[in-house]
Design a protein around this nucleic acid. Structure first.
Length: 499
RNA sequence: GCCCCCAUCGUCUAGAGGCCUAGGACACCACCCUUUCAAGGUGGCGACAGGGAUUCGAAUUCCCUUGGGGGUACCA
């Protein structure tokens, strides 16, 4: 990379839907590229699709990028000298450029109606040939034009594509790519309402925003030759292009909403950590070597290079993300984890909306400690811990009866356990464990049988965090209340059986 | 249809002519640890799409076939 010119890259999403995983990966690679070279990362909102663009989607893009920790140096809410960073605020800039193209005959007014164009397309379909605009308006005389205008037709502006020759470019990721100009259409660059289309606006913006490297998805490869011609027609220098491999759904088609969760917001709500998602996304299309795949943000910035980006489409594999997320959760310190889990506990109404006292926070923290290594997603926390917060547990009393025990035996066992719990001097996990192991021995029971019954009594379920730590967190009073309730449930059960 | 891109385990990938009997990770299976579930440990299963060519020697280079993907808008 030449050091004279500062690297300037951009992310240019259109606010026509929630910010999704594919966009996030593109943003991440651009961001890493910029940060690696000490360059500038620009965020530009491509809102020229006035029908589908919505302010809330712009907000969603901003929120998602922030959540991921991908900060931009120029763009919405950041400002910058080369703005505005919303295309709809740059209409005069495009106008100036299209005027120049018109003046030099590199673009022309086209008066064809949708119906006329559709008829052309239909003809092409019938003849089984590739459709391309007939270019019937390319050489209209002034008279013809005023006549068409007199009919009230609102023209679009089309780009006059070279009719022969080839265009090529050296893709930073894929090497040389070439297209025959014959394949290229006289594309519309300004719509009849005066708003520029993507391929035109992007060229004007990338130039005026001094973008040096255009890093985007592979789906833009077919656009690149068109844009190169526009760059040239305008007398603009070309940026470098790099096309990232696609992110695919399990069916190997481009990842989209129909593959399930696709927006960054959804991943946040499911309880993925931004650092895990960033790490995972970095691995989709990029790799460092055959050893390391857990990277801190700083390592990614240091190690990232466009040369190590692959060309093959990558399936978004949620299982690996889950593993990574679990890994990151396990690495978090307890205070941090607890703070991150709290919103999920509140949403599940296990914890009230009010600010927690230090004691309360400490209590939640001791609960979180018991599930830290069992969590894959933060949203699982309420389901794993609800029994800590509930006063009355709902469960099938039959679960209290461990394998090879009768209800009567189970009841007697729990009664014994109750006595020893009461008698325990220090109510902590090591003591409880010691006491209960002793009890099992005294009763000549397998520890699993005793612990199993107790687990159900205390947690209402067969799968739970370690029993004695759970009891310790619950406290003697709560634990006894639950044991008592289990005994009475068993009583009812026994009554019913003998009746 | 036409154009373009791509092609190593189920998935993400390492591999830039001999280091490959193809390495790692996720997932899966087994075992160990263990009060359940996890976590952790050990081991296992598992791939160079096919065919030519170049070369003393190809996963690595070239060509063809096949397969997959993307594009083909007054969407971006």
């Amino acid at each position: 990379m030449s050091s004279e010119t500062k690297v300037r890259v951009r992310m240019a999403p259109s606010p026509t839907g929630p910010f999704h995983v594919g966009g996030a990966r593109t943003a991440l690679f651009n961001w890493l590229f910029a940060r690696h070279y000490g360059g500038v990362f620009v965020l530009r909102i491509e809102d020229t699709d006035v029908l589908r663009s919505k302010p809330e989607y712009t907000q969603n893009i901003v929120d998602s990028l922030r959540w991921l920790g991908l900060d931009w140096d120029e763009g919405p809410e950041a400002g910058g000298l080369l703005g505005p960073y919303f295309q709809m605020q740059r209409l005069n800039t495009y106008r100036e450029a299209s005027d120049r193209l018109l003046a030099s005959d590199k673009a022309y007014y086209c008066y064809c109606t949708h119906e006329e164009l559709e008829a052309e397309r239909e003809k092409a379909r019938a003849a089984k040939v590739a459709y391309r605009y007939s270019r019937r308006c390319r050489h209209l005389t002034a008279e013809q034009r005023s006549e068409l205008e007199a009919q009230g037709r609102k023209p679009v502006i089309r780009f006059a594509m070279p009719l022969d020759g080839t265009v090529g470019f050296r893709d930073m990721i894929r090497g040389d790519i070439a297209f025959a100009n014959q394949e290229l259409d006289d594309l519309v660059i300004v719509k009849s309402d005066g708003i520029p289309t993507y391929n035109f606006a992007v060229v004007v913006d990338d130039t005026t925003m001094e973008i040096t490297h255009v890093i985007r998805g592979e789906d833009h490869i077919p656009n690149t030759p068109k844009q190169i011609h526009i760059f040239r027609a305008l007398g603009y220098p070309l940026p470098q292009f790099g096309h990232l491999p696609m992110i695919l759904g399990p069916d190997r088609s481009k990842l989209s909403k129909r593959h399930g969760a696709a927006s960054i917001t959804e991943y946040a709500e499911l309880g993925y950590l931004p650092e895990a998602l960033v790490n995972y996304l970095a691995l989709l299309g990029w790799s460092y070597d055959d050893k390391q795949e857990i990277f801190t943000r700083a390592e990614l910035i240091k190690l990232f290079s466009i040369e190590r980006v692959g060309k093959t489409g990558a399936i978004f594999n949620i299982e690996k993300l889950d593993w990574l997320n679990g890994y990151y959760i396990r690495q978090l310190d307890l205070d941090d984890l607890t703070r991150r889990i709290l919103p999920f506990l509140r949403q599940a109404e296990l914890v009230g909306p009010e600010e927690l006292t230090a004691d309360q926070f400490g209590h939640v923290k001791s609960i979180v400690a018991l599930i830290q290594e069992r969590l894959k997603r933060l949203a699982e926390a309420p389901g794993l811990t609800d029994f800590f917060f509930k006063k009355e547990l709902e469960y099938d009393p039959a679960l209290l009866v461990s394998k090879a025990l009768t209800p009567m035996e189970a009841r007697a066992t729990i009664m014994q356990a109750r006595e020893r719990i009461v008698a325990t001097a220090v109510f902590d996990a090591p003591n409880l464990e010691h006491t209960m192991r002793e009890l099992a021995e005294d009763l000549a029971m397998k520890t699993g049988q005793l612990f199993g019954s107790l687990r159900v009594a205390v947690t209402g379920r067969t799968i739970a965090p370690p029993l004695f730590q759970t009891m310790a967190v619950l406290g003697r009073e709560q634990t006894l209340a639950r044991v008592d309730r289990a005994i009475s449930m068993l009583d009812k059960m026994i009554q019913k059986l003998s009746a």
